[in-house]
Design a protein around this nucleic acid. Structure first.
Lengths: 172, 172
DNA sequence: TATTGTTATACTCTATAACTATA
DNA sequence: TATAGTTATAGAGTATAACAATA
């Protein structure tokens, strides 16, 4: 265990929980703050994710959307319903398969997309206000490197995928 | 907005969602992976947080613990119950106030604390495997800077504090 | 028979507010 | 009256499996 002879620096990494904890902590903070800002648009982060995917791949089906976002199709129903009732997207009949829909952003949907972009940039600026531009570039590059190496899919938030909870202690 | 004359680099930050998104994404990934590893000990991250606070401040009451972790006292009951039934902590009578308990780690609790530390280090090493030691130091410093500037409390994970969800669309 | 979107069900987690026993 | 710990209740979110329409 770290053959250091100077006892004063024998635990150089146990500062504030380590980089991994900092990542989780700052990341949760970033997600929470973004969610707060998004509330201005009466949306939640999951809505924003859908809008972004739809902008990138118009006409996508709900199955494909679920696959792209790594979530269950049944989970999308309510979210797509909400976006549709807000007039931000349309469910159009699919050309060749009458079981499925083609999802398309409306004009209002595209406006919302832009608003989301503005909020995201504003959010990021506030979040990284303590860093110089050069430091922000460094941070981005380092995070991108970790994300790539860890096999994270660009633009897809894990959304807290099912975490195996150990047996909740015996409860008779 | 960024007075760039070269159109090709007019959007230098819209790469993979920006640093803020990367932070949320990598942070959620880090938290999820840590949770998976912690399952080896039949614990969840919230348990680990309690154990760490107890190690730092032995004899703390549940109210003070709730305050330290920024959570509701009622939320701690089940968690403390579980740790007690595992023999990792004890509820001892408080010296001067018979309403409250003094929480103390047992020997097994201290062993578990060490196991948590090992898991955390192992986890961090895996998470940052794509970075050199110098890059890891850089990343840690940058994250620490953001955490400080954002007013995050050292060692306290936001745990996803209540996010204001906008009115769930009308549902008659 | 398989697949798309949807609905139904059960289960977990949480916040809130009671409750008790002390202070 | 106020506080510590606990319990009860209700609500949101999710995974899973069923379902009807279509392939």
């Amino acid at each position: 265990m770290r053959g250091n002879k100077d006892p004063d620096c024998s635990k150089p990494k146990a500062r504030s929980g380590g980089a991994a904890f900092l990542l989780a902590q700052v990341g949760a903070h970033a997600a929470a703050k973004f969610g707060e800002r998004l509330a201005e648009l009466k949306l939640i982060p999951a809505h924003a994710g859908i809008v972004r995917v739809l902008a990138a791949t118009p006409g996508i089906t709900q199955q494909a959307l679920a696959s792209a976002l790594q979530t269950q199709p049944s989970r999308l129903v309510a979210l797509v319903d909400e976006l549709e009732s807000k007039g931000l997207l349309e469910r159009r009949p699919h050309d060749s398969d009458r079981r499925s829909y083609s999802l398309h952003l409306t004009d209002a949907g595209h406006s919302t997309l832009q608003a989301i972009g503005r909020i995201a940039r504003d959010h990021q600026q506030t979040l990284l206000a303590g860093l110089s531009e050069e430091q922000q570039r460094q941070l981005t590059a380092l995070l991108q490197r970790v994300a790539d190496q860890q096999g994270l899919i660009p633009r897809v938030h894990p959304g807290y995928r099912t975490i195996e909870r150990p047996e909740r202690s015996e409860k008779p």
